[in-house]
């Protein structure tokens, strides 16, 4: 078989796995984003118990290996009566782990907004919620995007771990293909390139988003102006 033919054959066989990898990345990142926002804002809260809870979550999930977390969710959780499918365990592990790193990014960006902005909002008698939603967060988002872009790529790479709990992602299918055809070099080279292409797509996407957001974003526009 010619090289091109063999490569396109491999790509074809691996495509369903790549699709699942993409799916995991998207869903996992949504969960991670939600957790990052919730925990990140909690880290800046005034109430100490809220801050402490968020800090425990962040330190725990950052300080332990994602694979250990995945295995715990998949193998140990059933003993507590909760059985997760490989897909559920995978998404949960990805979201919880990357969300913890994301929380620090959110926290850093929020406290970087100049203090005068919060004071101006207080002077205008805005409630803490309004302050955060309309004034602080919109300004913090710009600073959050580059680190979030990096975390998104980390998440993509981490999806490969789900192959170890038998989820048919790109890496799992590559292993399967290898054991059936033995074309190790071609297969793994193609797989690496496929991941690289996906990572590059993410990088481009985030860069585009950064450009749009920093173009003096006027958030909302939810009331009509004549």
């Amino acid at each position: 078989m010619t090289l091109v033919a063999s490569v396109s054959n491999i790509v074809e066989r691996l495509l369903p796995g790549a699709l699942l990898t993409a799916e995991l990345t998207v869903v996992g990142s949504l969960l991670a984003a939600a957790l990052a926002l919730a925990a990140g804002l909690s880290l800046t809260a005034r109430a100490m118990p809220v801050r402490a809870a968020a800090r425990i979550y962040v330190e725990f999930f950052r300080g332990t290996s994602m694979l250990v977390q995945l295995f715990w969710l998949f193998f140990a959780l059933p003993a507590f009566g909760v059985e997760l499918s490989p897909l559920q365990a995978g998404i949960l592990a990805l979201g919880l782990n990357i969300g913890a790193y994301g929380a620090e990014v959110v926290r850093g960006a929020v406290i970087a907004v100049p203090k005068g902005q919060a004071e101006a909002a207080i002077a205008l008698n805005m409630s803490p919620g309004l302050r955060m939603r309309r004034i602080i967060l919109p300004q913090a988002v710009v600073a959050m995007l580059p680190p979030f872009g990096n975390l998104l790529i980390e998440l993509l790479k981490s999806t490969a771990l789900v192959s170890l709990v038998t989820l048919s992602d790109l890496t799992f299918r590559a292993q399967l293909l290898r054991s059936s055809t033995g074309e190790t070099l071609e297969i793994f080279s193609v797989v690496l390139v496929m991941y690289f292409v996906m990572a590059y797509a993410i990088t481009l996407g985030v860069r585009g988003l950064e450009r749009r957001v920093s173009r003096g974003l006027d958030v909302g526009g939810s009331w009509k102006t004549s």
Binding site: I153, L156, K157, S158, T159, A160, L161, S163, L164, T171, A174, Q175, R178, T184, L185, F188, S189, V191, L192, Y195, F196, A199, Y200
Partner: peptide, 17 residues
């Protein structure tokens, strides 16, 4: 390249290739 691809796949590459 190395930063954009999973460690797991790189390990497989080294071990099997």
């Amino acid at each position: 390249f190395v930063r954009s691809t999973p460690l797991l796949v790189q390990l497989y590459f080294i071990f099997f290739v």
